[in-house]
Design a protein around this nucleic acid. Structure first.
Lengths: 341, 341
DNA sequence: CTGTTAGCGCGTTCAT
DNA sequence: ATGAACGCGCTAACAG
């Protein structure tokens, strides 16, 4: 690998002159510029961004720590973040934490050592340590999708509470009263908020809350537990099942199919979060749809403003940006007559 | 951010002593070690790996450039690569090229500047420039899945030719003679090999090759072209359709469903590459299955041996490692009697 | 067992 | 318009 010095020698100039050519800084005569550019080309010189970053104390890099890279929801979020960053010439490093706290901690350590300029992360659980570690180093941070208790941080997320409530109220409006829910993992804020929305909707319509109608599933697709748990829920004889994210809902549909139950004739199904585009020949699920691209874009945008120091609020205060969600009514809910419920 | 000097001052030692404590190198008295460790803790010191890499000329980083992060095939490959790397304390940086040459080129540049220790990449097209650029900088490289013409490089890939041939011969064995194929994008080696396998199988059974039965689809899921192309192929009245990768086959199934055609009663379907686990309530597609985890693991393993300089072959010679594939017979192919074909 | 010197590759500061 | 010296944070080589 050629260094800036090699190029300088070859062009018979000082290293700093080469530097100026590369960065278009200062005045350079056309003649020397040509000489230098020729030398760069001949030596196939590639600037070493390590030393550059060492000088600038800036890596132009943000770290995006995602919980499940397999879920199109998150890859879409990533795309949003990448687009926001590339507008500012920042590079995004993508890491998959697999919903595991240890993996998350490890990546945070690695990226901290690599002097990342900022973190965009979805918390793996409710533990505050990871986030406090980032705080200690005063590296800007924006949380994605999930809130962590007792921590000051900026978070960009969807309206889980309101969306969930709206979805369940829709079911109630269609005559359902015995509504099962396959929720997400415990100790994650979105899970709790969606459950809370479910409870609020029931309460608002004087339907008593039956704990037997709720199970905690897993947000991952590759987990047969969602199928088993659906079978359990069906035993409770609900008229509708509510899946707390796209993969959970997918598991529900699979389970019902295996049991020979049709949707919506034998069982109504709704989902928080749409199934990925193209997963079904024709979409029929009634869902609350989030906007993952905007989630990523907005969060990255906020992070960048922290990094560049031109933000109204700073990274160290608590603030939430809540993205609206949309109810998409399709054909997975059966309308019940009063007596049939 | 505290530096090694801050820690040294606090512990009343020289910076190098701190360095020795961190890296467990050289002899340190228990007493000073304790002092230093205390200082590290109090100052919440995080070593700067930028400067470390600058000294070592090693970043302990490999770059994994994938064509489609949305495809579980590739995320599984990534997991294999990550597992191989973490055994050697190497970090993997994941980049999504989206099958676009410009994105690939850009990432290569960025990672080259960041002094990555090696590349693991799936070529976006048949262009040699990207790879030659890496070669010029003599950075170790292993190609994933696809061969590039006229280039010396190590590649780890599945047996596309043999697998494709076996799959089509299976169809022929079931009495099919008019077999359509929805292939992948042109100018990618796997596409050509799978087409070649298809042709070889036909030739071996004296079935003439009809160009009208082949279309070039797209490897991505989010592309409705696969559905349209399937409709076109159906017009040609084949008895079976062969999808050249998992997402293409998925598109075929969707198209058939939309057209009201049942599988396998009205149309047989086979696929190169299995659908992702759990995508279908119960898997019924007859497929050639690859082993993406092994693909990633093996390629990373090879790359690491190049990096550590203990490889039998070096990174600069051409060599191929071809992983075997497996025919999984399920229920998507209808057995034709001679007269019905 | 611990410290001093020097340099990895680059760019800011100050000179010329 | 161009260059010399210095330092970013870290560690190998060589003292002591």
């Amino acid at each position: 690998m050629a260094t800036i010095r090699d190029v300088a020698k070859r062009a018979s100039v000082a290293p700093i002159t080469v530097s100026r050519v590369i960065n278009n800084s200062g005045y350079i005569s056309d003649e020397t510029r040509a000489k230098v550019e020729a030398a760069i080309h001949e030596l196939q010189y590639v600037p070493n961004s390590l030393s550059r970053s060492l000088r600038f104390k800036r890596t132009n890099t943000i770290s995006l720590l995602l919980s499940d890279i397999t879920n199109p929801f998150w890859t879409t979020t990533a795309r949003g973040a990448e687009d926001a960053c590339s507008e500012h010439n920042m590079n995004v490093f993508l890491c998959n934490t697999d919903e595991k706290q240890t993996k998350l901690d490890n990546y945070v350590d690695v990226m901290l050592q690599r002097q990342t300029d900022g973190f965009l992360l979805v918390p793996a659980s409710n533990s505050r340590q990871t986030i406090e570690r980032i705080r200690e180093q005063s590296v800007p941070l924006v949380l994605l999708d999930r809130v962590v208790e007792d921590i000051e941080a900026t978070v960009v997320r969807s309206d889980s509470l309101g969306g969930s409530r709206r979805l369940v109220e829709y079911l109630i409006g269609q005559g359902h009263r015995r509504i099962a829910m396959l929720a997400g993992v415990e100790s994650v804020s979105t899970t709790n908020m969606r459950i809370e929305g479910y409870r609020q909707a029931l309460a608002a319509h004087d339907i008593s809350y039956d704990p037997a109608l709720i199970r905690h599933g897993h947000y991952s697709l590759h987990d047969d537990r969602n199928i088993m748990l659906t079978r359990e829920l069906v035993q409770e004889e609900p008229t509708a099942i509510y899946g707390a994210n796209n993969f959970i809902s997918f598991g529900i549909l699979q389970a019902l199919h295996q049991m020979g139950l049709r949707t919506p004739e034998d069982m109504s199904v709704v989902s928080f979060d749409d199934l990925p585009y193209n997963w079904h020949p024709d979409p029929f699920l009634t869902v609350i749809a989030q906007t993952p691209y905007q989630l990523g874009y907005r969060a990255a945008d906020l992070l960048l403003s922290f990094i560049h120091g031109n933000a109204a609020t700073t990274a160290s205060t608590t603030s939430e940006e809540i993205l609206p969600v949309e109810l998409i009514e399709r054909r997975s809910v059966r309308r019940l007559t009063p007596q049939s419920s």
